[in-house]
Design a protein around this nucleic acid. Structure first.
Lengths: 205, 205
DNA sequence: CCAAGCCTACCGACTGGTAGGTAGGTCTTT
DNA sequence: AAAGACCTACCTACCAGTCGGTAGGCTTGG
């Protein structure tokens, strides 16, 4: 027989995670109630707690999933590494594309970064090795003369801010620019501009 | 007697606003209860509602105050305007210093920017003319050849992101850098780096 | 005397979470 | 094949606690 025994079994769990991810990204942890999530899924609140032990567990699960996706992408982008600006642009572009397709992640991560909440430590310590790795790479390339000398960590923070903010603050930027900043055309412009800014700063003259 | 009669009369209102600003910045609108604010001030919740008609009114009041401060600073920084990079650096430095002393503002504004909440429109429309003004200045100077040509709006967004994120995401950055990013020494380094990045991009060779 | 400022006591709405029950499928035993 | 045991997925009903907000009383200085 088809192993269809639990037809919605694993399904429902995934549906809950999806709905929760959206809600948490849109309205934050406090701003999201289990009823909200249940409504999205189309079941009752207690049924949610049949699949997860608590609201906090759902949140943790969402975070772990997203951080995992992000780590995987970075790992992939630095496999088969080249050197100098080529490698920087590769990572920059990979990150940009990832954020394009994971705007929930951006907003959620940003909320965590701002309030340093109870779950914050876990994701911070998950991100730290990636950051250190990137700093190491930049410093090595700068020493080798393949990139202009800068404070690598600071430059990285600037890139982090310039890229992430564009996605996380999309509502505000919509008003400022008067157009949808997440439209394909707008994203193309944005990507070009960011890459250009860092190329100017990093590529040896 | 000591003139303690209305010791907290007008004072209390200000104390409430101060406490509310901190709480809202730390934990967001949903994450802050009137009891939290009342406890900070040292009175009971209903007493707060004697001074303000509602929680929302308090929040609006906090926002208006901060946006006002920010507008004032920008206005001051562009009075007696010069041209080219000198003027850019002046605004950049002024903004940096303002954020240093108004970290509450940064975190609050960021929260608003992320969720585009109910109060969001007001602050967005308050910020828009400042943004347009800046874009206008940059484009004029680029056309005049006093700044290198860029997409002015995009460059502004990059600066916005690079500076604001450093302050708003201080909890995360603390972990990434392993030191306090808001210490005087760290701030000096940060300011130099940001200014340098934009000087490289904007100053004509 | 009166008003400002603060209080206690209360309200209805909503929160996360629990208790207990039901429908229906699968697995095991006879 | 039939029957009972067990399981998952979901439900309704309820809990204690907290939320923002209101009503009304007490105190105190002008």
């Amino acid at each position: 027989m088809v192993p269809q025994a639990p037809p919605a079994a694993a399904d429902t769990k995934i549906l809950i995670l999806h709905a929760a991810q959206r809600r948490f990204a849109d309205h934050g942890y406090e701003g999201t109630s289990l009823n909200d999530i249940a409504d999205d899924v189309g079941i009752r609140r207690p049924s949610i707690l049949h699949h997860f032990p608590s609201k906090e567990a759902i949140y943790r699960s969402v975070l772990a999933q997203l951080v995992g996706d992000w780590s995987e992408l970075v790992t992939k982008a630095v496999a088969d590494p080249t050197t100098g600006w080529v490698q920087v642009e590769r990572v920059l572009s990979a990150a940009f594309e990832f954020f394009e397709n994971h705007t929930d992640f951006v907003r959620l991560a940003r909320r965590e970064a701002i309030d340093g909440g109870p779950f914050f430590d876990e994701i911070a310590t998950a991100l730290q090795p990636l950051f250190d790795q990137a700093v190491g790479f930049l410093e090595r390339e700068m020493r080798a003369g393949r990139l202009r000398k800068h404070n690598a960590a600071q430059l990285l923070l600037s890139g982090y801010g310039a890229i992430l903010s564009y996605f996380s603050d999309a509502p505000l930027i919509t008003v400022l620019l008067g157009t949808d900043p997440l439209s394909p055309a707008a994203l193309k412009v944005r990507r070009r501009e960011v890459v250009e800014l860092f190329r100017t700063a990093l590529e040896p003259r």
